[in-house]
Design a protein around this nucleic acid. Sequence first.
DNA 1: AATGAATGAGGGTTCATTCAT
DNA 2: CATGAATGAACCCTCATTCAT
Lengths: 202, 202, 202, 202
Amino acid sequence: MVSTLDPGERAKQERRRQILDAAKAVFADAGYHGASINAIIERAQIARGTFYLYFSSKAAVFDSILDQAMAELRTKLRRIDVAPGAPAPQVQLREQVVATLEYIVSDRALAMLLMSAGHTPDAEATERLDLFFTEVRDLIQRALETGMEIGLLRPCKPQLVAAAMLGMIRGVIELMIHQTDAPTVDEVVSEMMLVVFRGVLK
Amino acid sequence: MVSTLDPGERAKQERRRQILDAAKAVFADAGYHGASINAIIERAQIARGTFYLYFSSKAAVFDSILDQAMAELRTKLRRIDVAPGAPAPQVQLREQVVATLEYIVSDRALAMLLMSAGHTPDAEATERLDLFFTEVRDLIQRALETGMEIGLLRPCKPQLVAAAMLGMIRGVIELMIHQTDAPTVDEVVSEMMLVVFRGVLK
Amino acid sequence: MVSTLDPGERAKQERRRQILDAAKAVFADAGYHGASINAIIERAQIARGTFYLYFSSKAAVFDSILDQAMAELRTKLRRIDVAPGAPAPQVQLREQVVATLEYIVSDRALAMLLMSAGHTPDAEATERLDLFFTEVRDLIQRALETGMEIGLLRPCKPQLVAAAMLGMIRGVIELMIHQTDAPTVDEVVSEMMLVVFRGVLK
Amino acid sequence: MVSTLDPGERAKQERRRQILDAAKAVFADAGYHGASINAIIERAQIARGTFYLYFSSKAAVFDSILDQAMAELRTKLRRIDVAPGAPAPQVQLREQVVATLEYIVSDRALAMLLMSAGHTPDAEATERLDLFFTEVRDLIQRALETGMEIGLLRPCKPQLVAAAMLGMIRGVIELMIHQTDAPTVDEVVSEMMLVVFRGVLK
DNA sequence: AATGAATGAGGGTTCATTCAT
DNA sequence: CATGAATGAACCCTCATTCAT
């Protein structure tokens, strides 16, 4: 019994996804407030009422999109393992960053959502997004602290550097989204790690 | 025709500024969509109709705020002078970055606007904002290219690194805005330049 | 063709009753407009579509409930028999009023419906309700006229007094419904008849 | 300075009244829930937004109508004065009842509102209405108790009789509203008082 | 006969914009 | 110039009803 879903349930799941995708696209285009249920249902090709059959409110779809993306992203991020025998920290880091960027960049709408998530009047959603970014920053910060402890990294203000690094990542994501002839994720990450580890001085 | 304004003109300019300031505060608080003309005119202590005497629409005030801020910022940014006798490139860069950050951080409302002004209903404003950031990125990119040419910097993909650096700056601005006990601009810039030039490896 | 119903027909009748009961409760709780098909089918434990298999619309159930209640009430009301040998008019009246009140008060949902069924969106239902009350008032009016003819009652404007008496009944029903420690139907009717027949003066 | 209102204020008051009147009519026709803002503004010949310039919500107009009516009615009702030298209790009562009925009957829409005030899903409005009727019933009840104390009335259950009397009044109001050839208020009150005081027995 | 997913008209409310004063 | 009452399109959401399964 590989799939436990009867056809009806399956169709519902598909419908839900159809709406989620439409909503994601509209949110990406117009932001939370600018996105109208009208636009979403038009894009999803469904009736007004159908939307509310699957989501209790506009805020609920938004949350759903965010929650799912964040869950997905969380699976790609974990603390660097510094136990003896583990892969080199740089290798671990690289893998995580590549996986994360690949996921984000592959879903343009999601990427735009995450990038511009600024002002939502739905305070809750904004907070949830902030929470996520804070989480990522903390992860980076702890990685930096560990790196300093094991003597891999030079002393620095971890909080500040973490914020800078998160910003860097956002910066390159934006580049990859907006640029048509953007380099591959691999190239991007390589260059970024060089900058972060060695700097740009000769 | 000297630059002195007759009193009537002067009063008008003041009125305009009064509205701009109120609008900036409201936009910063609530985002573009969340900001209502109501909130703006209440804060500016003017009547509904008066607003439209000075600005043709809500979008127009927003544009005006953005344009002015960008003009101000542009005065602080210029190409690094590599002519013999000019100050060291690092010093020039540092000065520009410090001046820019200080301007942005000192005007919290403006900072929030710039950081999160993702979604305007009129595509034009968004585009103008994008253009500005592209401009800044180009400036950084050219600085990098010059640095490589004069042998100061190691070879790298300038576009990519420029995007990363712009992101870094945005990252630390966000930190400074949201954090209450944030470090001073000077400390922040020092740390950032260390990272950019030398990296974090020991 | 005896009056026994085949099992299928029987089941259908039961289903119908189940829905009617649920609807009555919901209407009583929330009023006509406040009652939603949703609430009714949830209470009746049936599917949305099933409802429309038994009733053509929301208004139709409402009508059905009202009609049935009115039919039931009509069985309890008849003209006073003044033929020689019949029970005393007061006794007959008392019996009818007691029976009627007992029926209404015993079914709280029904009582609330009758009391407050002012606004139905279909004018027909409102009219039918009006008709019923008019019918009752006419019955009272004719009783009064008969009473005057046989010299039992003093001369009065029967229409007016009938309206007043119907109002009285409604007034005490409301009291009995809303009050928790309300007196029994018997007590209520006794007091009411005293007022009507003798007045409250010493 | 008889009227302290400048023309602008005056116009506003008129507008407000225009909306109130339209709303009253629509509420009377359709009940609280059945009344749509659409119907109200159509009747008042105003734009959708104008309505909300004068009332913050549908509930607010309803409340306003009720509040005003109740204030008006309260001015007409007071306790019976049994001090020596005061007019006879029956005379006082008669005056109050006549004044009250005349006010209610003269405003058909208001009368219908009060009569059918049954089920509003707006719990607050229902409660406010209930409160009013309870107040009236209490007034009657206290009048009865006083009447019994001073030996004017025979012993009876005041609460019950008060409910009955309030019902009577409602009954005759309904008659006067719905009937085209209804008797005058004076006649109605005379007849009612006869019934209440002396009963209908010969 | 029974289901419940889908529909869309209509609900109340907000708000950028206009214009007579 | 300045005002603020008036406007109506657009907002999010509900719910009676239909119809394919």
